[in-house]
Amino acid sequence: MNLTLIKKVAGLRGMRTAGMVLVATGLSACVTINIYFPAAAAEKAADKVIDEIWQVPAGQHPAADQPTVPATTPAVPAANQEPKP
């Protein structure tokens, strides 16, 4: 009887240590995740910064701005011209 009791206690302790090991593994995994260098994010950030410095979308911005400018300007002269005659 005593032997089985000792075995049970030992088993319980084993379970506890197993649980502790699991938690420790989880915690160490968390530290590892934070240390990883976010390569994809860095590439995205680099692209953004380089485009800003080199003004790569400079050719696209005026093209995007132009349609809005002529769209508003003809509307104003048209409104001004109509009441005159």
């Binding site: 197993a18 649980g19 699991l22 938690v23 593994t25 989880g26 915690l27 995994a29 968390c30 934070n34």
Partner: peptide, 12 residues
């Protein structure tokens, strides 16, 4: 213990 580990890893 397993659920705790899973939750931890998801949160992280």
């Amino acid at each position: 213990a397993l659920l705790c580990g899973a939750f931890l890893s998801i949160a992280l």
